[in-house]
């Protein structure tokens, strides 16, 4: 390649409460670090900084590189309708820690209708989990349909909650019209490398 991007890539991570978004961030941080990707993280919560504090305490990343945005309302308002707070946070991080390669924006817990503005992020993934119900893909929420990458997390729980994981994957692939689906267990890290590969290929452009 003959020149470099002027700014860091911005990747959104959305999905319902408890699906494993912060656990996913904890899994991807060391993987990006190992491949030399310079990273910062923005978390969005309703009225707390809970997810940001968890990441700062994790020891995985310089706490200064983690910024919390408090939505004060349904989190989708600040990632879709008016993403100004997140745009400002991303610009500040890019200035403070230049040069950055990647800013991850984790949305607060939201419902299946949550989507990211493409003026805010270059690429976004939607995290659902097996324990949330095997029928989630069939419900065809905007997050499931429109995300660049759909992640089905907590694969290990399928036999314990009576979910046919193969059927859930097949239905997810069917409703997404060819867009990728990845199955993970963010507790152990299983499947996470494939997420890194997608981000590296599609927005970091280095694989």
């Amino acid at each position: 390649m003959n020149n470099k991007p002027a700014s860091a890539a911005r990747v959104g991570i959305g999905g319902p409460v408890g699906s494993g978004k912060t656990a996913l961030v904890e899994q991807v941080i060391p993987r990006f670090a190992r491949r030399g990707t310079r990273l910062a993280v923005i978390t969005n919560d309703l009225v707390t900084k809970e997810d940001a504090e968890r990441l700062k305490r994790s020891g995985l990343i310089d706490p200064e590189r983690v910024v919390a945005v408090e939505a004060g309302a349904c989190p989708h308002t600040v990632i879709r309708e008016d993403p100004t707070l997140n745009l400002d946070a991303a610009e500040l991080l890019e200035l403070k820690f230049a040069p950055l390669d990647l800013v991850l924006l984790e949305s607060g817990g939201d419902n299946l209708a949550s989507t990211f503005s493409l003026e805010l992020v270059d690429y976004w993934m939607f995290v659902i989990d097996v324990a949330g119900g095997g029928d989630i893909p069939r419900k065809r929420g905007p997050g499931v349909l429109q995300s660049d990458l759909l992640i089905i997390n907590k694969s290990d729980l399928a036999p314990h909650v009576g979910v046919d994981l193969d059927l859930m994957i097949a239905e997810a692939e069917a409703v997404r019209g060819g867009k990728p689906v990845i199955v993970t267990n963010c507790h152990t890290g299983e499947g996470v490398d494939a997420i890194i590969d997608h981000v590296a290929r599609d927005v970091l452009f280095d694989s």
Binding site: K4, P5, A6, S7, A9, E91, L118, Y123
Partner: peptide
Amino acid sequence: QDMQRHRLRVETDKGTICAIALPR
């Protein structure tokens, strides 16, 4: 909807793989 993006990997009609990365 993809016209809103600032950064994306695409292929031209002649098969050239492109990495678009525009200033914000």
